[in-house]
């Protein structure tokens, strides 16, 4: 509960920062919106409609008040309320990023642990090599290569989109479309998690309590799982929280490459169309969701580690 209250200043800070950045737009938004229709009367009217004739703090408070009531303004390029569009798109982003996040957490920890437990063997070297490639390849390039290989040449998965245009829309169809983008998105994060897991496991293997477990005659496998991994997960958890941000960020590229109808693609389109209100709403909404996600990670950390309970 306290943790939730502590989110309030962070959320406020996020709104202030976004508001300030957006307000610093060079030039006149009204002119940008109206384009060649920018007669002085029209400009004045738009300014009044958008509340741009008021002072900065006033505008911020009005905007904040609207947000609290769930009103993120109206997108002029789509001509619909920002919140409706964002919610719809965020759903798609959540499916993609969520899958990638789960994938990178499990695979990363698994691969990192195996690598540490087999340190300096061929397996370890092979994993380290793959991880190195994984963290070096830009996700958008990887996505393109995957489309070329698995969709165009091997025809295993659809080229792009979230659902098939004809006869799609059910869960198997979604999964079929989800495989490639989620893997492309997960690869970099998996590499990072694997590296950190490997180091964490190596560090923990040297601890006195692992020696105690060995002196007790506990089997190596249970030492690795119940003694080493148990602690490793607690140390890796904050890294996973951080990785979630990277996965969410990476989803922007992946959504473009795979034509996934998510928030990222919406934001890029909105920027290119100069639909500032949509950008503003989307950024604030997703950032606030991310803050709450990190709180959840924090709470989980407390549950798993009795020392900081």
């Amino acid at each position: 509960m306290n943790r939730l209250l502590s989110a309030i200043p962070v959320v406020l800070g996020i709104t202030i920062i976004v508001f300030l950045i957006i307000s610093l737009i060079p030039g006149d938004p009204a002119t940008a919106i109206l384009g060649s229709y920018a007669t002085p009367e029209n400009v004045a009217k738009i300014n009044k409609d958008l509340g741009l004739d008021k002072s900065l703090p006033e505008r911020y408070l009005i905007w904040l008040g609207n947000i609290i009531q769930g009103d993120f303004g109206r997108s002029f390029s789509l001509n619909r309320p920002v919140i409706d569009e964002v919610m719809e798109r965020f759903n798609a982003t959540l499916i993609l990023s969520g899958t990638a996040f789960i994938l990178c957490s499990f695979l990363g920890i698994l691969v990192g642990t195996i690598s540490a437990a087999r340190q300096y063997t061929l397996t370890d070297k092979f994993i380290t090599f793959i991880v190195l490639i994984g963290i070096s390849i830009p996700s958008f390039f990887l996505g393109m290569m995957m489309i070329l290989t698995f969709a165009v040449r091997l025809k295993l998965f659809p080229v792009s989109g979230m659902y098939a245009i004809w006869g799609g829309g059910d869960l198997p169809d979604l999964i079929n479309h989800l495989v490639m983008p989620s893997i492309a998105l997960a690869i970099v994060a998996t590499g990072v998690v694997a590296r950190i897991s490997r180091n964490a496991v190596l560090e923990i293997l040297r601890q006195d309590y692992v020696r105690t477990a060995r002196a007790k005659g506990v089997k190596e496998r249970s030492i690795l799982i119940s003694h080493v991994l148990r602690v490793a997960i607690v140390t890796i958890l904050p890294v996973l929280g951080l990785q979630a941000g990277f996965v969410l960020s990476g989803s922007v590229y992946i959504e473009i490459v795979f034509q996934w109808p998510g928030v990222g693609r919406m934001l890029v389109d909105a920027i290119l169309k100069r639909d500032i209100i949509l950008v503003q709403g989307g950024v604030v909404f997703v950032s606030i969701c991310y803050v709450f996600f990190n709180i959840a990670v924090d709470v989980l950390q407390r549950v798993l580690d009795p020392r900081i309970r």
């Binding site: 941000g245 934001l267 909105a270 803050v291």
Partner: peptide
């Protein structure tokens, strides 16, 4: 507290 790309996008948008 921001996912970094959102901040970057907001700046580019502005």
């Amino acid at each position: 507290a921001f996912p970094y790309i959102l901040l970057a996008l907001a700046i580019v948008a502005a």
